[in-house]
Design a binder for these strands. Sequence first.
DNA 1: CGCCATTTAGCAAACGTTTGCCAAAAACCA
DNA 2: TGGTTTTTGGCAAACGTTTGCTAAATGGCG
Lengths: 382, 382
Amino acid sequence: MASIALGFEAAGIQTKDRNVKKNKDVPAEEHSGPLMADVARLAGVAISTVSRALANPGRVNEKTRAKISAAAKQLGYTPNAMARGLRVGKSNIIMIILPGSLHYGASQIIPQILQGINRSLSQHGYHLMIANLDRDETSEQHILDLAFGGTVRGVIIFSSQLPVDGNRSLADTALPIVSLLLDMSESSLPSVVTNDRQAVRQATQELIELGHTRFLYIAGPTGNYHDVERYGGALEALREAGLSEQHVVRSGGAHSYQLGFRTGVEAADDFARLEVKPTAVIATSDDMAISFMSRVQRMGWNIPTDLSLVSFDGSPVCEFSTPPLSTIEQPVEEMGQAAVALLIERIEQAHIRTATRIVVPSRLIRRESMAAAKPGLNILRS
Amino acid sequence: MASIALGFEAAGIQTKDRNVKKNKDVPAEEHSGPLMADVARLAGVAISTVSRALANPGRVNEKTRAKISAAAKQLGYTPNAMARGLRVGKSNIIMIILPGSLHYGASQIIPQILQGINRSLSQHGYHLMIANLDRDETSEQHILDLAFGGTVRGVIIFSSQLPVDGNRSLADTALPIVSLLLDMSESSLPSVVTNDRQAVRQATQELIELGHTRFLYIAGPTGNYHDVERYGGALEALREAGLSEQHVVRSGGAHSYQLGFRTGVEAADDFARLEVKPTAVIATSDDMAISFMSRVQRMGWNIPTDLSLVSFDGSPVCEFSTPPLSTIEQPVEEMGQAAVALLIERIEQAHIRTATRIVVPSRLIRRESMAAAKPGLNILRS
DNA sequence: CGCCATTTAGCAAACGTTTGCCAAAAACCA
DNA sequence: TGGTTTTTGGCAAACGTTTGCTAAATGGCG
């Protein structure tokens, strides 16, 4: 407007005008969509009335409200989320932080988790943004920018530690955070977890009852929460049965879960090298179990006659391996829903400060890969 | 609201006071974080200088810039994304629309796709939001609200049609959109696809060269783009070899891909019922192939001696089935990257209007599930 | 030292909503 | 009908940035 007026004012001095323009970016006149003001004009009311009619219907006459929403529909009006978010100081976006090695355990559970969470969130009017937490600094920065920049309203952190960058830490946010799969209730983060330890203990107990006394444990990344818990559960069962830690051989542990299949292959090689063969194998993920099984079968061992096998995750594919694989199924759907419920509770009632812990139990699905130990056959030659 | 007010009215005069308050919400004094104004004050410059120093470093003295970014770091300042977005009229969020039956083909490819896309986006400073496109109306509304409400800056639509709701359609947005997996370049949407048709044709040709003349085709959802393409490819190969459509039996087609395993199981039953047995099976997803294989093996058939098998998707698990499964691998990583590249190109240079089509070829991974047809053994009894 | 060209910094107006406050209208009661 | 309560609508000020314009500062040159 001002520049046009200037142009008219001094028609001869075009240069001047040009110079002025150098500093000027186009104001992006392209937002196109109808504004609340357009709706108000069409409905013959004030903007504020439109706002109230759309967001807080109780506060406006029904007849007016109808007129307004008709106008809105006619124009195809959609309120601008950023303007709203800026004004009310909150967004309706939830961020889920996924570990860099995305394929934790069986990759199959990630889509289920994401879908379950997204559905639950949608029902409450929230949207889902995903963030990858790699080991590099930039990914942590991105996440913290999202958190501190007001883009997100709450965080679900999936089997990871809270990211930190410089003097900013996710823990310092006022944002509600829920930890999924990783128990961080000690650090006063509400957590939704499954009973890794107990589930593995129970599976080990069953193997012991079937007569097994020598175990191969195929480990996840050393130090990983899930690996520690699961191995701990196996050891507990052994101890209860009066068996020492000598009765279990560990394999794997060097790789991230992303390489589950490779870990299983290497475990099969380890197995082949052992003088004293275990009769039962506990794998910390289905991927490992499947590739392990494939390799040892190829080497000539029979499952479950020579070797029983049980793993963790509950991927659907386990039902269709040969033989069908016993696995500890994680109730991903329920866990996702529980996490969302917890998060929304924190969002909507800011006064909740107690750190809850919700344990959704995993359950062992018994299939043909588990059988009684071969009596008196504790030593096999490779 | 109205009824509550009536209740108060009857109660007495306290109502007045309460009613006044009813209209008042706390102004949410809790944004907490440091503002650009705080940084400016600490650095001893004006707000606008801070803004320019942070976003457009060339426009401000280096010494000043250093002072400002030191101040920003000291305060842990993070710019508010919604305020920025509102002002500049654009966000930095990309939305990916996933089909409601999320487990298209092998669910394994979804996490890979998502991770690949998210990584590429991160590098360009964008964030990824996921949206589920279910069959219900609310999910379409949610998606359109995101698109029209200015929340997102671009859209990647994964193997789905554009959602429509009332008089709003994603097609009407000014937003850049890229279609992934589904070829919509005819509808002037830039698309990144793989060569479904040609890949299946080639695999079928190889089977024919191995002496196979009777096929079982395990179909995806009837009418689905991928199913049409893949079946078409198989038919083309048959026709080229002078074989009529009679030489292929279709199974499945009724379910969504989500039930891939079940489709395979039912295909095995169909197979058992056939008088004239096919000698080769083409499955449209790895899930189907795996469950099919498991069942027919259990019924006593041998793979690949009695029956050759090839499927689509390239899930890692195929390498470890018994026997290892031949599969057509989709280059998901490259496809994701290509989609992002295309999208960012459209975002940053708004003048591109030509609809591109990028074909990233799939490749057949040959494993033991494919072998020569048993000579002269076209009919087996069940 | 003075004049002009070029940087650099600051003011204030946007961006599109929501909402406190107040005025107007409506409804009710006597 | 007049006064009082209740409801409804409108004005304008936020929310935290970016940015056009202008003022000030800096530097170059005669």
